[in-house]
Computed example of a mutant assay.
Amino acid sequence: MHYDLTDLRLFIAIAEAKNLTRGAERVHLAPSSASHRMRLLEESIGTALLLREPRGVSPTRAGEALLRHARRVFAQLEQMHADLTPYAQGVRGHVSLWANTHATHAFLPDSLATFLQRHPQVTISLEEHTSPEVIMAVARGEIDVGVVADLLEGAEVELIPYRADRLVLIAPADHPLAPRASTRFAEVLDYPFVMLHAGSAIHTFTMNTAAALGRHLEVRIQVRSFEAVCRMVSAGVGLGMVPLGAVAAGAAHAPLAVVELEEPWAQRDLKVCVRKRESLSRFAADLVACLSEGRVGPT
């Protein structure tokens, strides 16, 4: 296949405008040139990308697939520009950090705010991944620092204590489970759940844990934060599984019942993960030092 960014930008413009002439105008091309480029693009890919209709154009199934990927390409390019811009502005350091959902939502906001206040010349790229993904990325040298809850046998990494917390079950105050002090995870799988969005590390972990028990979890709704999980649960939508450290903020809006989970994996002792601490850059080492300060559990 032979095409360039101009072709992709033109295709997005045409697909969004649903008109070749208006799409060409958006990217400052003549309609004849745009039509020629689209024809060559379709020939290169080997299939039609646009349906020509009396009142305009619309993407074919192949065109819809290209549109999704092209948008991702330009989003990634924008992220690349965002990552490079600080260097041109005199920022002297950058640290790549991956963390699981628990750390990303519950503890890292405060920790990273402290670090960035101390180091205004440093930028951080933070991504959310499952703990095994984080550990493997650190072991391969793809990222500088990780924060994880699970260990991975055989991975050549160093682990430094960060925070102690545990996963708990939350339920509406009038739920049948509310009076219980603790429960097994297998005993609650008949109830609907409120979950973080698909793709979040805790969503993946919870679904896999249910599958390992031979069960399918009924997810009533997926939301974007632990606070939203707490509010949905308090409204009676379903049960939730969140870190204990996230309950206080979420419960500020409505009462919740907190039920301990009688599972070894419920204890989520978060650890900072690095390949070799002595090999870290100065800024990455400073970040690790900042994260390892004040190793406390939830209040």
Rank of each mutant, 00 (worst) to 15 (best):
S131P: 00
P132C: 10
E133T: 12
V134G: 00
I135S: 02
A137P: 05
A137K: 02
A137G: 04
A137S: 13
V138P: 04
A139E: 13
R140V: 01
I143T: 03
D144F: 00
V145D: 02
V145R: 06
G146S: 11
V147M: 08
V147L: 06
A149T: 15
D150F: 07
L151S: 12
L151M: 07
L151C: 05
L152E: 11
E153N: 08
E153R: 09
G154D: 07
E156T: 06
E158N: 05
L159T: 10
L159W: 05
L159C: 08
P161S: 11
Y162C: 06
Y162A: 11
D165R: 03
L167K: 00
P172Q: 12
P172T: 12
P172I: 13
A173N: 10
A173G: 09
D174Y: 05
H175R: 01
P176R: 10
P176S: 10
L177D: 09
L177M: 12
A178S: 15
R180H: 15
R180Q: 14
R180L: 15
S182T: 06
T183P: 01
R184H: 14
F185D: 01
A186E: 13
E187S: 13
V188R: 00
V188K: 00
L189C: 05
D190G: 13
D190S: 12
F193H: 10
V194R: 09
M195P: 01
M195R: 11
L196G: 03
L196E: 10
G199F: 02
S200P: 05
S200C: 12
A201Y: 09
A201F: 09
I202R: 05
I202C: 12
H203E: 14
H203I: 04
T204N: 12
T204F: 03
F205I: 03
T206W: 14
